[in-house]
Simulated scan of single mutants.
Amino acid sequence: MFAGIVSGSGLLRRAAFALIKHPLLLVPLLFCWLSCAPVIIYLQFYFDWHRYSQGQQWLVAFLAILFFSLMLSFASLILLELIRQIEAGERPRLAMAVGKALPCLLEALPITVVWALIWFIIMLLSCLFHRRDADSEDGVVNAEAIAESLAGYETASVSVSFFAALNKGVRMVVFLIFVAMSWEHSDVSRAVRRGLAVARTHDKAFVVGFLLTELTAILLFIPPSILFVVHHKVGLELPDWVWLLTILYCAVAWSLSMFLEQLFTAELYLWHLMWEEACTQAALDDQPAPALSEVRRPSILDDIADLSRLAVNSAQ
């Protein structure tokens, strides 16, 4: 899917074609956003943090992050099953994907908990290095404030960008681990080893995917960011329906950005499986192992059931 892409806009265009062909692929992530958004709004605007000690506040924050990681893990596993169905030459079926993702989610629970712990630590470090402006914590609840909260709008800084990138890198590695669990039915320890091995073995491809998905996410959130900046700098008052549309846009933009990350990691993992097959064949032919770039890059858009073919070959 990512062959020939030299910009985030190109990546976004290719992803849009994938969603036009298989619109079901975005449903799990939209469901995840709809599940997490009310929790974010409640904790930021309605939860009385001052009633609790610092330790209790940390516990609430960790439980919220654990919920977010659980929902994103579930959405990821559903999406991976839909991609597996497509790569196996089957018609994607959401109900079947949910049914297969549920037991896999239970098996992946240790990974999800560790992920939540790392996410929580990154959040604490980010809070130590970054303080919000006083006017961002005035407690005013309106459509504009909710839109800014769900869009993650805040003053840009080096520390915020660093910790956001760190969190994203961890998330993409977790997505690779989930691919091993979902497609190869690996146990937790083997899935972790496989996911980390793919990231290390193809570190350049992983970094390129990281940068492309990040650039695309920036492009996606430029429109609401411009709206927020104009509102704050110029003082332009906008009706509530504009902010409601912004919230809906942010839901789609966030879901699409997560879709890009998951799709890239899934295709990188599939590319790795094809590279392993090519290396095995090269050893049998007494030839040097090929580079990853010398192996055809897979895509769910090419109507080639690579995953099904690899499963048949491994069984022979």
Rank of each mutant, 00 (worst) to 15 (best):
M1L: 00
M1A: 06
F2K: 13
A3C: 00
G4W: 09
S7C: 11
R14E: 15
A15C: 07
A16D: 07
F17L: 10
F17P: 00
H22F: 08
L24M: 12
L24W: 01
L26F: 00
L26N: 00
V27F: 05
P28L: 10
L29S: 01
L30Q: 03
A37R: 07
V39D: 07
I40H: 12
F45P: 04
Y46K: 14
W49E: 06
W49V: 03
H50G: 04
G55Q: 14
A64V: 03
S69N: 10
S69G: 05
M71E: 04
F74M: 08
I78A: 04
I78V: 12
E81N: 11
A95N: 07
A97P: 02
K100S: 01
L102K: 15
C104D: 11
L109D: 02
L109Q: 10
I111D: 14
A116Y: 03
A116V: 03
L117V: 15
F120S: 14
L124S: 15
S126Q: 13
C127L: 12
L128K: 15
H130C: 02
R132L: 09
V141M: 09
V141C: 13
A147Y: 10
E148P: 01
Y153L: 02
V158S: 11
S159T: 09
F163M: 14
A165T: 08
A165N: 06
F175Q: 10
L176R: 06
W183R: 09
A191E: 15
G195M: 11
A197D: 15
V198C: 13
H202G: 01
D203K: 14
D203S: 09
A205Y: 06
V207C: 04
L211T: 03
L212I: 00
T213R: 14
L215R: 08
T216W: 02
L219D: 01
S225W: 03
S225C: 02
V230K: 11
V230D: 06
H232F: 05
E237V: 15
L238V: 11
D240K: 15
T246Q: 01
V252P: 04
L256V: 06
S257V: 04
Y269D: 05
W271T: 05
H272A: 12
H272T: 10
W275P: 01
T280W: 12
T280L: 08
Q281T: 03
A283I: 06
D285Y: 08
P288F: 09
A289S: 15
P290L: 10
A291F: 04
L292F: 05
S293V: 00
V295Q: 13
V295F: 03
D303V: 10
D306W: 10
L307I: 01
L310A: 11
A311R: 12
A315N: 12
